[in-house]
């Protein structure tokens, strides 16, 4: 579904050139859930923005559904760290925003909007304004908005990182449930190893400066996964430990 071939991104700043990403090769299958983890400055968000068509790679090619990405695509949705809701629009109208911009059939999608709002547990809140909602609820609305046009690809840039730990956990579990009901390819950027293990089919580990693909870790834990007690606790611990070692430098000055 998504293919990156020898993708590099170089930003030229005042202090010379910054290699944000260096020769990235990655393939994401249809309906797969991939998380990108790495320390700050390893180019995770840059990679996501390039797949979204918001940023052109300095070199290399990116294709989505077999077509080269040159500008934002209708079947690719982007979800931001902040909910980015329009404060004057109700929950329902915020979810409908992409439908208006993309000039899709309103009646059909209004029905879908109601379904999505129900799916994330916000039924009854359709007429509320964003400021009447908690941060977690706002991010749920944002999730509905990014799913409204039935995108083939959903790109999520640390979508839950501005939320408190419990809400974050709850939304991760919910996203997993929604993913099991909706056929969507998801690329999800996160700092959290826990989140990565809970959500991903594969975890892509990036190393910083220049951002390079360090390792891809398969997470073969059956779904639905949970964060509490479960039958696969050992495997979860194992994968988490592996990721931890990749991301946090060893005390003896290991290179990471």
């Amino acid at each position: 579904m998504i293919e990156l071939r020898h993708v590099s991104q170089v930003f030229s700043g005042r202090q010379g050139e910054v290699h944000a990403l260096d020769d990235i090769n990655l393939e994401v299958d249809g309906n797969e859930f991939v998380t990108l983890v790495g320390r700050s400055g390893c180019g995770k968000s840059t990679m996501l923005r390039m797949i979204a068509g918001l940023l052109k790679p300095t070199s290399g090619t990116i294709t989505v559904a077999g077509e080269p990405v040159t500008k934002p695509r209708q079947d690719v949705s982007f979800m931001f760290q902040r909910a980015a809701l329009l404060p004057w629009r109700t929950v329902l109208d915020n979810v409908m925003l992409p439908v208006e911009i993309l000039r899709l059939d309103k009646a059909v999608h209004r029905e879908r909007a109601h379904e999505l709002i129900e799916l994330v547990g916000l039924a009854g809140f359709e007429k509320r304004l964003p400021r009447e909602l908690s941060g977690g609820m706002q991010q749920r609305v944002s999730l509905c908005r990014s799913l409204i046009q039935n995108p083939k690809v959903l790109l999520m840039d640390e979508p839950f990182s501005a939320l408190d730990a419990l809400t974050r956990e709850e939304l991760s579990v919910e996203l997993q449930r929604i993913k099991m009901e909706q056929e969507t390819t998801i690329v999800f950027v996160t700092h959290s190893i826990e989140e990565a293990v809970l959500l991903a089919d594969r975890v892509v580990v990036l190393s910083p400066r220049p951002g390079r693909l360090r390792k891809i870790v398969e997470v073969d834990i059956p779904r639905p996964r949970t964060l509490g007690h479960n039958a696969h606790a050992d495997r979860v611990t194992e994968v988490s430990a592996e990721l931890h070692e990749l991301l946090v430098p060893a005390p003896a000055g290991g290179a990471a």
Binding site: A52, L54, K71, P72, R73, Q74, S77, F78, F80, Q81, R82, A84, L86, L97, P98, I101, L102
Partner: peptide
């Protein structure tokens, strides 16, 4: 806000 500008851009508005 930058995120709202980027949001509409991500839909090719």
């Amino acid at each position: 806000p930058a995120e709202l500008a980027e949001l509409v851009r991500s839909y090719g508005a």
